[in-house]
Nucleic acid binder design. Sequence first.
DNA 1: ACAGAGTTCAAACGCTTGTTTAAATCAAGC
DNA 2: GCTTGATTTAAACAAGCGTTTGAACTCTGT
Lengths: 214, 214
Amino acid sequence: MNEQPNTRSRLLEAGLDHFGRVGFEGANIRAIATAAGANIAAINYHFGGKRGLYLAIAGHIVEGITATIGPMAAEIIAFAARPELRPADAREALRQFVKTAGRLLATSPKAERWARFILREQLDPTDAFDVIYDGIMGRMHRTLTRLVAAVLELDPDSETARLEAFSLLGQALIFRFARAAVLKRLDWSTIGEGEADKIVAQLERAVARLGVKP
Amino acid sequence: MNEQPNTRSRLLEAGLDHFGRVGFEGANIRAIATAAGANIAAINYHFGGKRGLYLAIAGHIVEGITATIGPMAAEIIAFAARPELRPADAREALRQFVKTAGRLLATSPKAERWARFILREQLDPTDAFDVIYDGIMGRMHRTLTRLVAAVLELDPDSETARLEAFSLLGQALIFRFARAAVLKRLDWSTIGEGEADKIVAQLERAVARLGVKP
DNA sequence: ACAGAGTTCAAACGCTTGTTTAAATCAAGC
DNA sequence: GCTTGATTTAAACAAGCGTTTGAACTCTGT
């Protein structure tokens, strides 16, 4: 029943999955405890209760994402921070970013769980949303904005640049958030490597289209 | 306490809001009944139970969306079905579509409730998803695909055309689904007419960019 | 071997859940 | 005005919920 790590970690993982699927109110701490191979009381012992576990999971997600995309993120951030960033270079950096992040988002089971949990938080945000936004989301969007602004030759602090960054993000996230519709419409049964290739190609097309003058 | 329509309708509206906020498992039929100014037993009487109400709401959403975008949709569908559809014409139709639909999606309280409910269904689809997909979503996406394909001069049945349609859709939906992040990042407190203008302008930029050769 | 803190366990605690029941109320038709 | 069917009501049902409890089980340092 038990996997490798300690009860605390197993509860975080099981909770992430469970909360993401049915939401905070719908979640059942007995089911979480069972899935984690732990006793119900362990949740109250380690996290002080259901809400405590939920908030801890938000932090756990930030850690997870940071650890996963950390190396690439550092590289891109350094690149994006260069003052003499040329449009063509920024476009290439953006292309690399969507290739890696897009594939991760499309195929990784971890990313699936993260996305589910985060999306539910967007639907009616609680304290957990601030944890995630301040921890990873805001930072990531600011970097994306700088790159997009460089490609479009916009002021990176302008509202337009931020809107453009959301536009690009939307084109990636739609394949994660509207997965059920994507699978039906494209007649796919699942998203494996082959399907991810097509999604990534679509994202590269989006980047290539950025800032091209009519 | 009671609004105008009958108990059945009030339960559908209250349930749409409540299920959308906290999900099926998290929803509380007592809270729904109270919000609707009805007795708990009314849910079982009219819909046979919690699940029955949930499924009925899916149908109610399809009706609502159809009634709201019906006139525009009919016009666009007729337009998109024309065999001799020229790229420039299709682009103009697409521009009109995102202007109307984008503003509705961004500002309408009804659209907010629909989007919330539908998004939750995407996270783990049940029978209700099929009701919504077959009822409105698939139809709408097929029309969108035809228009996008015409602009890009692609085969409207090609996988690429369908992916491109999702890309465009993603750019509109991100402002609805990731609303919490959008508000934070753009330092908006709410999305009123002024903010909707900026979102619609961003969507028009996305349409203008479609199919422009480098 | 022992002590003591850290952790896990089964059992029980109120309380809330979705559903059911049977009586009360309403709206027409004759 | 009474009857009949549809609808609404308050009350009760068992099952499930999050939390608490106190005893049992680790494990580490001495």
